[in-house]
Amino acid sequence: MNYKVQRRNNNPPTIKQLNNRQQMKVINEFFSGMKQLLKTGFGPEARGTTKNYQNLAIEYNKPNALKGYLPDVEIDYSKS
């Protein structure tokens, strides 16, 4: 089998990458402790796909429940 060796990116992260990291941090902190709720809500949608319940929860909530831009990313509770 041929496996590609992934090289480490030594370039500094872009603003978009830093914003994405901040969004992921906020959404993961929000979801911490909600495993069973996420599994119940998004688990049925994940069946038969290559995604798991957490992937689907992030995919839905990241664009729909977050507001702001680096460094002021936060949950918009009126939308979540």
Rank of each mutant, 00 (worst) to 15 (best):
D72F: 14
T50K: 04
Y69R: 15
N11H: 10
A65L: 05
F30D: 04
V26M: 09
Q22I: 12
Q17N: 04
F30A: 06
E45N: 09
A46T: 02
T14G: 02
Q23F: 06
N20K: 07
N10Q: 09
K25D: 13
V26T: 15
F31M: 02
N19R: 07
L66H: 01
R7I: 03
K39T: 14
Y60C: 07
Q6W: 05
R8G: 07
Q6I: 14
P71F: 07
N10I: 14
G43L: 05
E29T: 09
G68D: 05
Y53I: 00
N20S: 10
Q36C: 09
G33Y: 02
K35I: 13
I27N: 07
N9Q: 00
F31K: 05
A57H: 04
I58W: 07
M1I: 09
S80P: 00
R47G: 09
P13V: 08
N52L: 03
E59T: 12
L37D: 15
F31Q: 01
N19T: 12
N61V: 00
Y69N: 14
P63D: 00
A57M: 05
R21W: 08
P71K: 02
E29P: 00
V5A: 02
N61T: 06
L66Q: 00
Q6G: 04
N10K: 03
L38P: 09
R47L: 06
S78L: 13
N55M: 08
N28R: 15
A65F: 06
Y69E: 15
N2M: 02
M24V: 12
N28D: 12
I27D: 11
S78C: 09
F31E: 01
N28Q: 13
S32K: 15
I75L: 10
L66M: 04
K67Y: 07
N55A: 11
N9W: 00
N64W: 04
P12Q: 07
N61G: 11
V5Q: 01
K67I: 14
Y53R: 05
P12V: 13
M34R: 14
F31W: 02
V5C: 02
G43F: 04
R7A: 11
F30S: 02
I15E: 14
Y69P: 00
V26S: 07
V73T: 00
A65H: 08
N28P: 03
L70G: 02
Y60I: 06
S78D: 15
K51I: 03
K4Y: 12
K35M: 10
N10P: 05
